[in-house]
Design a protein around this nucleic acid. Structure first.
Lengths: 292, 292
DNA sequence: GTCGATTACGTATTACGTAACAATT
DNA sequence: AATTGTTACGTAATACGTAATCGAC
């Protein structure tokens, strides 16, 4: 029977160009590789190589075989990853989210509900990464900023988040009752790096601004205290980390992009696990929620 | 390494329900199968079975593994078929057509152009079968009744075919200068079975008619001579098999469905092979063309 | 007692390595 | 001379079969 190891060998030959080089890479002898490929050809019933006296090269069949079998081996690896992820999903909960706030909220209610379960989280602004991860069982549950319609998955509304601009009282914008992104465009703004899809939003709505990304939260907080630079907060962060002494004012942002509704999406097979979520998120007390 | 034979074994266990039965089917001993599955689990790093004292059953992981690996093995078989078809396509020409007339024409010009090549043909009214066969190299060239737009393929117009109704001069419809399918709907009509998509056309345009399909061409011809039943002919068949002595009149059919333009579609890699076609089909002398 | 699964151990298949050879550079 | 590929033949890995054991029905 044709076996995976033969296909791996074929691809290695294609990559390395010669049998000798491929054999070296595969940690087998070159005669073994010769015979292995002869068997593969025999089992397929077609020739894969043009053989000259001391030269071997893929023929048309061989080139197509390499192309098709490479796909197949990738799919095999994909399946193994999926199976391992599926196995893990039975012992731990993996959250994938487009933004940080849903992670805080979900971790809070999930640890309360399932104190013995391991809960991990990934922040990723790419929706396709999240949806793919859900499909591959890499995520048990994902959070997007919009609902989806797919009969395989449950989709429940979690909560809303509204963005504010935070500036010192002396800042020219501090007098505004509310503000639009256009008012801000061009101003330098302090930002945390790990904010998921808010990152893309900012680059889109204030393209003229310098976005001063900070990886470190401590550094970020110091800079806010020490500078007059505007930064963003949301109604959620104003509840989870109170900073009355900061001496900053929060100005509502009127643009649609500043108002987000988060939706949790999970496999219907996990209904039992996550059915409590909708109710739990309604009653969440954000002042109890901690980040990280 | 995980190998195909282990996946086959897993699927057999899933099908047969027990190790003993599966071992019997696989023509190996049951202990060998036990160990093989233990290795598979070890290599995957996950458990696939719930093991009780003298009972083994797939767990959740196992069920998913069976589902995913079954797909993978099907793809493997598909690839092997594709490779073998691709290999054959280098030595022979396989025509797939939605109707008989293009097969006659193509075989005629292809045997003239490539007298040493084997040429086979398949008549199939299902467009997806033809397109899939083209993709899988089962067909070197296919003929549809409309062009397609796909950058991988060349698409050239071959010729037109126009349908006529053939009736004895004494038949009531024989007086008509031309005719529409509506005039015919309800009448019994003699038909050959192997006429490709014309079959579907007839069932659609004269749903009230009894379609008296004949598998055998000889029988069909006898019935035409011996009966007053109407049958279909086309401008092509009237050239390829002349039947002046039949004492029948051919009446043009005015409906759009009775006028077809055939298009040949082939892989761009086969440009050299088929480039001559368009010109050759223009100059074809249908009187020289034979069926089968 | 029969059936189904696992473990232990010896066996056989088969893929592999070594050696020798041929041909190209 | 160095490199590349094939063939022949002995070897070693490993999948397999047999026998024994345990437990369930």
């Amino acid at each position: 029977m044709i076996e995976f190891y033969q296909l791996e060998q074929l691809l290695t030959i294609a990559r390395e160009g010669t049998l000798s080089k491929a054999a070296e890479v595969l940690l087998i002898s070159q005669p073994a590789l010769t015979r292995s490929m002869q068997r593969l050809e025999e089992e397929l019933g077609i020739k894969l190589f043009n053989r000259k006296k001391n030269k071997i090269e893929l023929n048309q069949n061989g080139k197509l075989a390499v192309e098709l079998f490479e796909k197949l081996l990738n799919e095999k690896e994909q399946i193994i990853s999926t199976l391992q992820a599926y196995n893990r999903s039975q012992f731990e909960i993996n959250i994938g989210s487009c933004a940080p706030a849903p992670i805080w909220g979900l971790k809070h209610v999930l640890t309360k509900q399932y104190p013995d379960m391991q809960i991990h989280d990934v922040l990723d602004s790419h929706e396709d990464v999240l949806l793919n991860g859900l499909k591959n069982y890499e995520f048990s549950i994902i959070v997007l900023n919009h609902p989806i319609d797919d009969s395989h998955y449950e989709c429940v509304k979690l909560f809303e988040e509204n963005l504010f601009l935070s500036v010192p009282p002396a800042h020219p914008l501090a007098l505004f009752k509310d503000i639009s992104f256009d008012d801000l465009n061009g101003e330098s703004v302090l930002l945390l790096s790990r904010i998921g899809f808010w990152n893309e939003i900012c680059q889109k709505v204030i393209p003229q601004s310098h976005l001063l990304f900070q990886e470190d939260g401590q550094v970020f907080n110091e800079l806010i205290k020490a500078s007059a630079l505007p930064n963003f907060r949301s109604d959620i962060t104003m509840l989870t980390d109170e900073r009355e002494k900061e001496n900053r004012v929060a100005i509502p942002i009127i643009n649609d992009e500043a108002h987000v509704t988060y939706y949790a999406i999970y496999d219907k097979n996990n209904k039992k696990l996550f059915a409590f979520l909708q109710e739990a998120m309604k009653n969440i007390n954000w002042k109890e929620v901690t980040h990280d």
